[in-house]
C-alpha cells in the first residue's frame, strides 16, 4: 500500500514539474511588470544618488540586460537549483530562504495542527449536537473568529497575554543572546510560538469548523448512515466509524489548498509578532523589488503546494477507500 502511494506521490510530483515551470515563467514576467526596480529602491532609500551610482547598481544586478537574457540566465540557473543571488541582502537566495523556512514551517505546522484538530473536533460536535446551545455557541464563536481581522486578534493577544498578564513575550522567535541549541532553546522558541500560532490558527479553525459541521450534517443525512442506523449500530460507532471519516474529506481538501493561503496570510501574523518567516520576506522582497528573491519564494511555495496536494490525495484514499488514485493515467 505505502509503496503504491509513494509511487503515486512521485508521479504527482513529476507531473507537478511542468506546472512549477509555468509558474516560474509567468511570475518572472508578471512581477517584472511592477513599476520601479531594485536600483531605484536602493537609491531612494539612500535619500540621494548619482546617475553613476544608479548605473553601477543596475549593472551589478544585471538589470541593464535585456529581459529575455535575464530570463534565459534565470532559467539556466534554476535547472541546477540555483535560485540566484540577492544583491540587496548580499547573500545567496537559497540561503536566505532556508534561514526563514524553519520559522515558517514551525509556525504554519503548529497552526495547521491546531486549526485542523480543533476545527474537526468542534465541527463534529456542532453537527452531532445540532440545534443545541453548545452547537450555537460553537458556530457563533466560529463566525466571530472568522470575521475578526487577523492583526486585531494578534494585537489583542499581545495586549492581554504579553503586556497585561506578562505570560509571553510580545514578539520575536527567541530571546536574543540566549543559547541557540538544546532543550532550553526549544522551550524558549515554544514560549515565543504560542501567541502567533494561536492567532494564525483562529481564522482557519473557524473555517474548518464550519466546513466540518456542514459536511458532517450532510453525511449524517446520507443513505449509508441511515442504513447503518437501521442495522442498529450504536450512535458513537456511526459517528466515528462512518460519518467522521467521510465528513473529513472537504476539510482535508480545504486544508490542502489553504497551504499557500496560510503562507500568504502569515504575512500579517509574522508582521505583528515580528516572526522572521517567509511571508514577511516575500513581502519585503516585493517592496524592495528584490524580484529574484520573490521568485525564489514563489518557486518554493509552488513545490510545497504540489507536494501537499499529492499527500492530500493519498490521505483521501485512507479515509475513503471508494476514491481510487489514478496517478499515471493522465500523464
Amino acid at each position: 500500500m505505502w509503496f503504491a502511494n509513494a509511487k503515486y506521490v512521485l508521479g504527482r510530483v513529476l507531473h507537478g514539474i511542468p506546472i512549477i515551470l509555468a509558474i516560474v515563467v509567468v511570475n518572472f514576467f508578471l512581477i517584472r511588470l511592477a513599476p520601479g526596480d531594485a536600483a531605484q529602491v536602493l537609491a531612494g532609500e539612500s535619500g540621494a544618488a548619482t546617475a553613476e551610482y544608479m548605473r553601477q547598481i543596475r549593472e551589478q544586478f544585471g538589470l541593464d540586460q535585456p529581459l529575455w537574457l535575464q530570463f534565459v540566465n534565470y532559467m539556466k540557473n534554476l535547472l541546477v537549483f540555483d535560485l540566484g543571488f540577492s544583491f540587496r541582502h548580499n547573500r545567496e537566495i537559497s540561503e536566505l530562504i532556508m534561514d526563514r523556512l524553519g520559522a515558517t514551517a514551525l509556525l504554519m505546522g503548529t497552526s495547521m495542527v491546531l486549526s485542523i484538530g480543533f476545527g474537526i473536533l468542534l465541527g463534529a460536535i456542532a453537527a452531532v449536537r445540532d440545534r443545541t446551545l453548545l452547537s450555537h455557541v460553537i458556530m457563533i464563536l466560529a463566525i466571530v473568529t472568522y470575521a475578526t481581522p487577523l492583526f486585531w486578534v494578534g494585537l489583542m493577544l499581545i495586549i492581554v497575554f504579553a503586556l497585561n498578564l506578562g505570560w509571553f513575550p510580545t514578539s520575536g522567535i527567541a530571546t536574543i543572546g540566549a543559547p541557540v541549541d538544546g532543550f532550553e532553546y526549544a522551550i524558549d522558541v515554544a514560549h515565543h510560538l504560542v501567541l502567533p500560532a494561536i492567532a494564525l490558527s483562529f481564522f482557519y479553525m473557524a473555517l474548518y469548523t464550519r466546513l466540518m459541521r456542514a459536511s458532517m450534517l450532510e453525511t449524517l443525512g446520507q443513505d449509508f448512515i441511515k442504513t447503518a442506523r437501521a442495522k442498529g449500530l450504536s450512535s458513537s460507532n456511526i459517528v466515528f466509524r462512518h460519518a467522521l471519516r467521510n465528513a473529513i474529506i472537504p476539510v482535508l481538501t480545504m486544508a490542502g489548498v489553504q497551504v499557500s493561503a496560510m503562507l500568504g496570510g502569515s504575512v500579517i501574523i509574522e508582521s505583528v509578532f515580528g516572526w522572521p518567516g517567509l511571508g514577511l520576506l516575500a513581502y519585503e522582497a516585493l517592496f524592495s523589488r528584490d524580484l529574484n528573491l520573490l521568485l525564489g519564494i514563489f518557486f518554493l511555495s509552488s513545490i510545497l503546494v504540489v507536494l501537499t496536494n499529492a499527500i492530500v490525495d493519498v490521505i483521501y484514499t485512507l479515509v475513503d477507500p471508494r476514491i481510487r488514485l489514478n496517478g499515471g493515467r493522465h500523464a
Binding site: 509558474i23 499557500s260 493561503a261 503562507l263 500568504g264 504575512v267 514563489f298 511555495s301 509552488s302
Partner: peptide, 8 residues
C-alpha cells in the same frame, strides 16, 4: 494556488 494568496 501555488502563489501565496495574500502576497499574490
Amino acid at each position: 494556488q501555488t502563489i501565496p494568496t495574500f502576497i499574490g
